[in-house]
Write a protein that binds this DNA or RNA. Sequence first.
DNA 1: TTGACGAGCGAAATCGGTTTCGGATATAGG
DNA 2: CCTATATCCGAAACCGATTTCGCTCGTCAA
Lengths: 344, 344
Amino acid sequence: MVKQTVGLKTLAAHLNVTVGTVSRALNGYSDISEATRLRVLRAADELGYRPNHAARRLSTGVAEAVAYVMPQYSSSISQPFVGQLLKGLGEAVAKRGWDLLVAHADSAKDELNHLDRLVRSGRVGGLVISRPAKNDPRIRLMRSLKCPFVVHGRTADCRDYAWYDVDGADAFHTAVDHLVTLGHGRIAFVGAPLQYQFAQDRLNGYRAALEQNGLRAVPEFVQITEFSDDGGELATNVLLDLDQPPSAIVCISDMVALGALAAIRARGLTPGRDISVIGYDGLKVGQHANPPLTTMAQPQVHAGRRLGDILLAIIDGGDPRDYQDLQKAHLLRRKTDGAFEQTT
Amino acid sequence: MVKQTVGLKTLAAHLNVTVGTVSRALNGYSDISEATRLRVLRAADELGYRPNHAARRLSTGVAEAVAYVMPQYSSSISQPFVGQLLKGLGEAVAKRGWDLLVAHADSAKDELNHLDRLVRSGRVGGLVISRPAKNDPRIRLMRSLKCPFVVHGRTADCRDYAWYDVDGADAFHTAVDHLVTLGHGRIAFVGAPLQYQFAQDRLNGYRAALEQNGLRAVPEFVQITEFSDDGGELATNVLLDLDQPPSAIVCISDMVALGALAAIRARGLTPGRDISVIGYDGLKVGQHANPPLTTMAQPQVHAGRRLGDILLAIIDGGDPRDYQDLQKAHLLRRKTDGAFEQTT
DNA sequence: TTGACGAGCGAAATCGGTTTCGGATATAGG
DNA sequence: CCTATATCCGAAACCGATTTCGCTCGTCAA
């Protein structure tokens, strides 16, 4: 650590006042004459005074920092949004002069320990939890610690805390509806392990849409696989090997969908003509896929900032239940959705 | 901030010793009897003692935290590697129980102010600077502050500080050599603004390779454009409009290369057959491009951890000049590089 | 002229640890 | 048996801010 050069003491000596006076002048107390305040402010600026963060925290008891908890098993797909999120989060907390720190997880057990330390040692005043499991232990921990937090995503029971999420059920409902409109009746779902709530939500949306459209739910049409392009490719191959393969596939993410496209092309079929595919995320790279990927795009841009604002509001004493933000995804048509053709 | 429940004082009272004794027992001093140490350790564990971070920092003077400075203009392409890097960095600092915080930049000027505060207020003991400009003010600031730092990338003069970089000049040399081997003689370069050192490095490699292969440097073949897919598309269109267009293009990044592919396909040409394209980064999504993108892949996996280890070593007093790590990229052949055909 | 009052500032306690110094007890040596 | 030494622990200073308390002025009304 760089040694403190100019502290309150230096300033005070320089101005012939006490440290208490300087501190009060800097923090806008009323029992300081305007003349003194100006003298102090000017000197602080000239000497480049930076209050020692640790001392202030110790004294005031506020951490002036929040943490972002990285997704547990961060596959390559989770990376793009991490950067975006951090940027937004950083902006939100920086407005208040607070710090943003990131917590990473070695294992599930280590992570809880890490978070406990982070909170109970007073390093952070709140945190953002991404991509929760159905009954996430991290959320239970934060509740028991009475530590402010906001969840990026939701769990099964999400009534009592703050969260920001995109409505996956709605999105997959929309995707299936769209495919039905195009004439598809045999629609498959390639999903991820259901321990994650978002995986369950999207599956629910798929199923609800099938039912509402009077379509039969074919058990083999629901493939749960690894959350990656390889997983998507594997699952799609299983689907295509079926006696009566689907004519359309909705995929739980764009990355999975890219794998699906690869599997389809490998058989000499053309995505969007022979088999329709719809992804989820709205990743920019999807437009460079072969062919460009139709997807359910998210209003991802402001998620980070919104999460930060929510967290700060709760730290300020806001009721978490007042901050539950459900965004809708929208259909972004590119080239992998097409009308059903009997010829298949 | 969650109020401290059990502090040193609580522990001391519970054990009928003084806080000093507890502190020394916990910190492994030798003048504590083994019996007492065990009693203290056990009690600390049972009561779930977490030392107050601010107090310890104030007392010891070490920040127990480092910061990662986000790339200045983080376009979509910069995101994937941010996540990876943070993961590795987090692991490295977590081994020591330190925190990782991220600093984001509103503007260039704000950023310097922000970094100055971060360091001089004692929040961090060192930092990682990504993607420096040729003569980066952030580096100058850190030097003047005598704050330990490591650079991810290099500047023009990089002799006196620690850095980790991938050899862009070598990579583009390799790429051009490869294309020459395939019979190409008209090779273009699509790059990014030269304010960034990495952009200059890669251009240098391209030029050196041309010269070494006895190829003429065509001025119009060097296109400097925006660091994105759109930029790549624009630049490639310019190249294709030339009276004598190139038969191969090396692109400064995979994202730019994806734009190039789009431009090529838009003219009914086939990348890899009519025109070869080589990207840089080794992004996984490149394999889902149309056609799969040949690229110079980086050993990106350990960059974060390595940067973290280097930074900690310097904070421990290591000589920065002993930590200069230049990695090599390697050619990852997919489908966009092909033999030159006269027919074009 | 005096007493009350308020403005402005100094002095000191406080946050929760770390670390130095010195004292008490136990052990060893003569 | 008495002193020298090592062992172990208590007491207190310290890190650099914040914040409370109270003192000292100057001002004004009685």
